[in-house]
Every structure is written in structure tokens, then in C-alpha cells.
């Protein structure tokens, strides 16, 4: 499945669906603050959109190249997560105690809001990258040189 998918219907539909899925994943991410959802689910939805991308357009296409580029962000999600936790630690509170996240001109509730949002983004990034790398390593085992992470 390394070539581009040749059906016009599939291509057109996915051109429509991929941005929609990504938008929905962002909605789940932000809505997760107050309701069901959050970083993990958002990451999984984002992964499905990325998988659809390289299934339909192939990895050689510009869209597929983007998927490969994403793989290099393996630790970025965790860096965001640990970074936010570490800033709380520097701010004098416990690890991940968002009330101590030092951001100027913010009261405790909005600090907590920002803190949770940032860690959720970190979680989402990591889940998405992990999902994509699992699919890539299962689907393209024979050409692993190309995706040497």
C-alpha cells in the first residue's frame, strides 16, 4: 500500500474527512477539560486521521512526508508533560500541582486550567505519535530503514 490510492471517490472523501477528524480531535481535547474526552481520546482520533492520510495518499506524497516528520516528535509530548510538571515543581508546589504554575497575571483557577490543558496536549501528542509509529512499524516492516526513528 505504498502507492497513492487511485480511486477518486476515496481521495475526495478523505480530503473532506481528514480535516474534519482533526477538528473533532481538537474539540475533544478542549472539551475534555469539562466533560468526557481529553488528551488520550484526542490523540487517538488524530492518529486515525494521520493513518488515513498515508493509506490514501501514500508515504511518498507531501501529506505522507508530514506523517514521517511527525514520528520524530516521539518524546515531545512527554517533554511537554514533564515540563509543565517541572515548572510546578520550580514554582514551589508538588509535581503537577498546577496552582503553582508560575505564569504572570493569572489567578489559581486559570493556572489550573492552563496547566491541565498543556498536559493534555502533551498526552495527545504522545498518544498520536505512538499510534502512528505502531501502525508504521507493523505495516512497513520490510523497509524499516526509511523510518529509522
Amino acid at each position: 500500500m505504498k502507492q497513492m490510492h487511485d480511486s477518486l471517490i476515496v481521495q475526495t472523501m478523505s480530503r473532506l474527512l481528514i480535516p474534519l477528524a482533526q477538528l473533532f480531535s481538537l474539540y475533544v481535547l478542549f472539551f475534555g477539560q469539562y466533560g468526557p474526552g481529553g488528551g488520550f481520546v484526542a490523540g487517538v482520533i488524530w492518529t486515525t486521521s494521520m493513518i488515513l492520510t498515508f493509506l490514501v495518499y501514500g508515504l511518498k506524497s507531501p501529506q505522507g512526508r508530514l506523517v514521517e516528520l511527525v514520528l520524530h516528535g516521539d518524546g515531545v509530548g512527554l517533554i511537554i508533560f514533564v515540563g509543565v510538571g517541572g515548572l510546578c515543581l520550580i514554582g514551589g508546589g508538588e509535581f503537577l500541582n498546577y496552582a503553582n504554575l508560575e505564569i504572570l497575571g493569572m489567578d489559581a483557577p486559570s493556572r489550573r486550567y492552563v496547566g491541565i490543558l498543556l498536559t493534555q496536549i502533551g498526552v495527545a501528542v504522545d498518544v498520536a505519535v505512538t499510534g502512528i509509529s505502531i501502525v508504521l512499524s507493523l505495516a512497513y516492516h520490510d523497509t524499516e530503514q526509511e523510518y529509522d526513528v
Binding site: 518524546g75 512527554l78 517533554i79 514533564v82 515543581l89
Partner: peptide, 15 residues
């Protein structure tokens, strides 16, 4: 901190 030292480097190493 003891836990974050190796964890922090572990997640930075790929970059």
C-alpha cells in the same frame, strides 16, 4: 526529583 532526573533525560534523548 530523583525520578525526574533519568526520566527527563530519557525523553530528551530522542531529540
Amino acid at each position: 526529583i530523583l525520578f525526574l532526573l533519568p526520566l527527563g533525560l530519557a525523553i530528551c534523548l530522542p531529540l
